[in-house]
């Protein structure tokens, strides 16, 4: 008649011990991690999905996967030091920033519904990313570039606060050099060396030429951005169901149970984080 504690074999909370292969401080608040599962096992994710990253004794948090599934043997994450960025919280992300190659993290996942790659095939793609949005979007951009023949015209619009805040600047340069990719960047605040646009990401959209019926707009960025970008894409006649968003919520358990990530009647961790606008427009709590 006492409380028994036994090992639970099929627990959804079990973590995999993963090893950090490489790190890079990208900006003052963003750090890059290349991570390998035990035995080089594939994460087997779709672009746009996320993992739960653990440091036992500190906690667990959902982090978007930044690498494309076409990259084999390891995957990549970019972690923002939340405490440093917002001045509060961020126990886990602060601790993650102290880790280096050779250290271990716990991984659960991948979780959620990513970008519908099969549906995107054969269509033109207009990527719009602001701030940290480029991190999850990069998983799809690199997937598309690695399977370039399967997709139509590719346009990438990027926005960030300053040129120094640009994430994956080298890679963005590579994308820019390609003949089969159109890329345009904007910053909120330029420095003397900046030759690109200055202003909000929305200002880049009117200049894009596209065939709306065969174009998917794929948008990832801070919550405040969506309303304005969606408005511009609709002005371009892109159908509502062809506008895809990845929404940020606190996906605590990743299992559609804990309730933190709920948006009206959907669980962002299971039904999202990628949604089409024809769905989210019916969720008053979405954007």
């Amino acid at each position: 008649m006492t409380l028994k504690r036994v090992i639970l074999k099929d627990s959804e909370y079990e973590i995999k011990r993963a090893r950090i292969l490489r790190t890079k401080q990208m900006t003052e608040t963003e750090k890059y991690f290349e991570i390998q599962l035990p035995g080089g096992e594939s994460l087997d994710h779709e672009p746009g999905q996320f993992v739960e990253v653990s440091l036992l004794g500190i906690g667990e948090a959902p982090i978007s996967i930044s690498s494309s599934p076409t990259k084999r043997g390891s995957f990549e994450l970019v972690v923002r030091d939340v405490g440093k960025f917002t001045g509060q919280g961020g126990r886990l992300t602060g601790a993650l920033h102290k880790l280096e190659a050779g250290d271990e993290v716990g991984i659960r996942g991948p979780f959620g519904k990513g970008f519908p790659v099969r549906i995107l095939e054969g269509n033109d793609l207009l990527f719009v990313a602001a701030g940290l949005g480029v991190v999850p979007l990069r998983s799809l951009i690199n997937y598309v570039i690695d399977n370039r023949r399967d997709f139509g015209k590719v346009t990438i619009l990027l926005g960030c606060r300053t040129p120094q805040n640009m994430l994956f600047a080298d890679e963005v340069n590579e994308w820019n050099k390609r003949l089969d990719v159109n890329l345009n960047c904007t910053v909120d605040k330029a420095d003397p060396e900046w030759k690109g646009n200055v202003g909000l990401i929305t200002s880049l959209i009117p200049g894009v030429t596209l065939e709306p019926e065969r174009t998917f707009g794929v948008v990832v960025g801070p919550p405040i951005m969506y309303k304005f970008v969606i408005k511009e894409l609709l002005k371009k006649q892109i159908p509502e169901r062809q506008i895809l968003l990845s929404l940020e919520r606190h996906m605590k358990c990743g299992l559609g149970k804990c309730g933190h990530c709920q948006i009206n009647d959907v669980y962002c961790c299971q039904d999202g984080p990628v949604f089409s606008y024809d769905k989210t427009k019916n969720f008053p709590e979405a954007v």
């Binding site: 008649m1 006492t2 409380l3 028994k4 504690r5 036994v6 090992i7 639970l8 074999k9 627990s11 909370y13 079990e14 973590i15 011990r17 993963a18 653990s54 440091l55 036992l56 004794g57 271990e104 993290v105 716990g106």
Partner: peptide, 22 residues
């Protein structure tokens, strides 16, 4: 409700558990 116990003396090692009572 305890979901797991851990020991990080040798890496990120955890043991998922369930506590129950008949």
């Amino acid at each position: 409700e305890t979901l797991a116990t851990f020991n990080i003396g040798n890496g990120q090692q955890m043991e998922p558990v369930v506590e129950y009572e008949r």
